[in-house]
Simulated scan of single mutants.
Amino acid sequence: MKIKATLEKIPGGMMVVPLLIAAILNTFAPNLLRIGNFTEALFVNGASTLIALFLLCTGAQINVKSFGVSVGKGATLLVTKWVVGAAFGLIAYLFAGDNGLWLGLAPIAVIAAMTNSNGGLFVALVGQYGSKEDRAAYSLLALNDGPFLTMVALSIFGAMGFVDGMFSLQSFIAVLLPILVGMVLGNLDEEMRVFLDKGSSMLIPFFAFALGMGIDFAAIIEGGLAGIALGLLTVFFTGTAGYFVFKAFKWNPIVGAAEGSTAGNAVATPAAIAAANASFASFVDIATVQVAASVVTTAILLPLYVAFLVKRLEKKGFTFEQGNMMKVDS
């Protein structure tokens, strides 16, 4: 029975399927796994611990030795992605209704989804249309993994008085420390980086299931369509912004567009934010579902959008050969 292969055929399947299964169980048989001891600890209450371990494994993949290779491109990608995502998050807060939602979207879901990018999808797209230097840019872009940049945006909005988004220094340290520990381990020992890399993929279905055990299926019905819209915003606004920013710097614009996605690990961000500031707790369920929907939507749509942009450039006389975009002399 090819469970892993089947899940991998579904966009975001390793995250979406366990989350949906858990949400169904939680809705129709909420006490089935709430039997105490190891079972409940892992499948129901384990989200925070699993997410912390995931952040540690992810932090180990941030290679400071590679920063110098493409630091300019990586920083540009990171800043562009964050600015666009944070701007939409601010709009969501400014125009949110009495229920705290903007067009059905939870503002923390907007920030979490739009400021985070799918590293695997980025590397795959850039591997096809970009250079080795372009691929190395992800070593810096990987800094948007996890809840840190979402916390930064919320803190800025809190200082501006738009949201109760302030976090104590201790909260920032508590979120960052697992990432920093992983980063130190990965940079001190390459074998540790390789070893922990396995965990960053393996843990996703487990923390997704634990998150799903806190979601009522009604939240999926309520937030699913809005989450698809969030995915569209992510692709067409962060991807297009990256395209034009890279074009302005006379870099390969396809590389800029390739960051217009949401990573599966962003599903954990609303829960991590609520753990650091309880004022966001009421939006965790719907935000988690919406981010999950954005993950699936962007995984399907971004490659199609990039292919469209490539065709558009080819019609203008550009070609992509051996990882380089070149103008064909007419």
Rank of each mutant, 00 (worst) to 15 (best):
2 K>C: 05
3 I>Q: 08
6 T>I: 12
7 L>N: 11
11 P>V: 01
14 M>D: 11
15 M>Y: 08
16 V>K: 07
20 L>K: 08
22 A>M: 09
27 T>W: 09
30 P>N: 08
31 N>D: 00
33 L>I: 07
42 L>D: 08
45 N>M: 13
49 T>R: 03
51 I>V: 15
52 A>F: 12
53 L>D: 02
56 L>T: 06
57 C>S: 03
62 I>Y: 12
63 N>R: 15
64 V>D: 13
66 S>H: 10
73 K>Y: 08
73 K>E: 00
74 G>I: 05
75 A>S: 15
79 V>N: 03
79 V>M: 01
80 T>P: 12
82 W>F: 13
83 V>K: 05
85 G>Y: 01
86 A>P: 10
88 F>G: 00
89 G>I: 11
93 Y>I: 13
96 A>Y: 10
97 G>T: 10
100 G>P: 14
102 W>Y: 15
103 L>K: 12
108 I>C: 07
109 A>Q: 08
111 I>K: 04
113 A>R: 09
120 G>S: 01
124 A>I: 04
125 L>H: 01
125 L>S: 01
128 Q>V: 06
130 G>K: 01
137 A>W: 00
143 L>E: 01
145 D>I: 09
147 P>E: 02
150 T>D: 09
150 T>R: 07
151 M>S: 03
154 L>V: 05
154 L>P: 13
158 G>V: 00
158 G>M: 08
159 A>R: 12
160 M>L: 15
164 D>A: 10
166 M>W: 12
173 I>K: 12
179 I>Q: 08
179 I>Y: 14
180 L>R: 12
181 V>F: 15
182 G>D: 00
195 F>E: 09
195 F>M: 15
196 L>T: 05
198 K>M: 14
202 M>V: 05
203 L>Y: 06
206 F>P: 15
207 F>N: 02
208 A>R: 03
210 A>T: 04
213 M>P: 13
214 G>W: 04
217 F>L: 15
218 A>H: 12
224 G>W: 11
224 G>C: 03
225 L>P: 12
229 A>K: 13
230 L>S: 04
234 T>W: 07
234 T>M: 07
235 V>R: 04
239 G>A: 04
243 Y>N: 07
247 K>I: 00
249 F>N: 06
249 F>T: 02
251 W>D: 05
253 P>G: 00
256 G>Q: 06
258 A>F: 10
260 G>N: 02
265 N>S: 15
267 V>D: 00
267 V>N: 04
268 A>Y: 06
269 T>R: 07
273 I>K: 04
274 A>Q: 03
274 A>L: 07
276 A>L: 03
277 N>E: 02
282 S>C: 03
288 T>C: 11
289 V>E: 01
289 V>M: 05
290 Q>H: 14
292 A>P: 15
292 A>Y: 08
293 A>V: 05
293 A>E: 03
294 S>L: 05
295 V>S: 03
298 T>S: 11
301 L>M: 12
304 L>P: 11
304 L>Q: 09
305 Y>I: 02
307 A>F: 11
310 V>Y: 06
311 K>D: 00
312 R>V: 11
319 T>M: 13
320 F>Y: 09
324 N>F: 14
326 M>L: 11
328 V>R: 13
329 D>K: 15
330 S>K: 14
